[in-house]
Design a protein around this nucleic acid. Sequence first.
DNA 1: CGCCGACTTGACACCAATCAAGATAAGTGG
DNA 2: CCACTTATCTTGATTGGTGTCAAGTCGGCG
Lengths: 255, 255
Amino acid sequence: MNDVAVTHPPVSGAGPTLRARPFRPSIDRSSRIDNLLSRDEQAELAKLATVLDYRRAGIAIFSEGEDAHFLYAIDSGVIRVSRHGEDGSRQVLAFMWHGDLVGLTERGRYVNSADTAGPARVYRFPLQKLRQLLMREPRLRLHLLTKAVHDLRSAQRQIVVLGQLSVPRRLATFLHDFAQHSEVYDAQTHCLALSVSRFDIADYLGTAPENIARAFTTLERDGVVQRRTSRVIEILNMAELGNFHSKWGKESRRS
Amino acid sequence: MNDVAVTHPPVSGAGPTLRARPFRPSIDRSSRIDNLLSRDEQAELAKLATVLDYRRAGIAIFSEGEDAHFLYAIDSGVIRVSRHGEDGSRQVLAFMWHGDLVGLTERGRYVNSADTAGPARVYRFPLQKLRQLLMREPRLRLHLLTKAVHDLRSAQRQIVVLGQLSVPRRLATFLHDFAQHSEVYDAQTHCLALSVSRFDIADYLGTAPENIARAFTTLERDGVVQRRTSRVIEILNMAELGNFHSKWGKESRRS
DNA sequence: CGCCGACTTGACACCAATCAAGATAAGTGG
DNA sequence: CCACTTATCTTGATTGGTGTCAAGTCGGCG
């Protein structure tokens, strides 16, 4: 019944009944969406945007292989970007936050899948009109280039994490990254509210949920974190979490 | 003595004695460098370019953390893009080929290191002048955006490889990708000339050289490849090489 | 209050990391 | 051109980390 979205349906395909609502260029949290863009450009973008509200976790925004008609910009919530194997395996490529763009395509089709990791609001832009706007507004390209380069750096970092680090160290890195987002980290209490499941973390770090639990135990034993509940983690030593080459790491080999 | 480059020195820092030589917009192999660019734009780019010739493998083009002054476009050869751990470990992020751009930066510094995996020729563009040109030529941004998005897809693919696949399957994927480049793959004889060492492959696939050798043995046992020499691989079953989810794969788990 | 899913812990097998050593190829100097 | 030196590659043996199956605990929701 309430399983999906609301005021503006998130069903894929161009919904004829969608009511376009302007998206707010400047909200309390500094919107990274519209950095670099002038007022006019923002206004033009806003005319294209549709607001989608997702009520709960696990709702598909789009799936890999589908014909791509939209680009999505996240307003609030956390979006999982993932890729699925035909055997049922899943690799979470990234968790996306406020200001991030989602909807990477290749030859007109989505390369990845995206779904909600919890309640979320996103802006939806029709690719066709976005392309036209892109032709008219060269500055918008620079903006997209900045976004793409940012995502590229993140992806490369994840390659290093998966290629070099042990599971406990991967988890430490993940927690460190997650704690950079004030939506889920309270710097006062040093408490991190995980908005994703152990399955999500496991699929993001290329391992199994059981190993995530074990890795938490390891980190607790070494005194860098403390589980308040399974979803609320108190961070005792943030510096150690972010330190790639502290203990638990795999080791090197010579060239 | 001859350890480094030639007609146009590759030493970092703006070399005052460098002689700018126009780079050829269209060479025999379809140059992916200048797709989407008009003649005028190509000409402008050419005026900025310096040609660097690297004679042998292992020469650093730039290193992570350095102040970034140049963007590099590969003409011929294979370039390793990698990141180093303070413990001596190395993760090869990508092998770059003719037409690829190298020199990702963050806040004015190179994020990665790049060095030659063999003799190579690259074009070098001063970032300062490139930025000016970028302001004047909006189409160039679209070109760079295309490149960045391409690299992003490649990086995401590598995340899946490292996160999901066993070492033999990773090697199979690597060989499949390498064989897409006609510079090193002879479609007639089905022979792949590896221009990189076992160390390079190991660091690219997040494992050790010994395991690469073992993975080769596995692939041979299953009849998909055959080592002619350690650097020349005959490919017996290309389809199987590219099939992510054939045998040797790790398995799934449910959500 | 009780069911159910998410999380955790334990046991065990297996893949991969590591150390050691031998085989092959390549580069160097006589 | 050959002999020597050296790096690269391969194989073996052993250990440790992680995948996997199984069971138990915790917490939330009906």
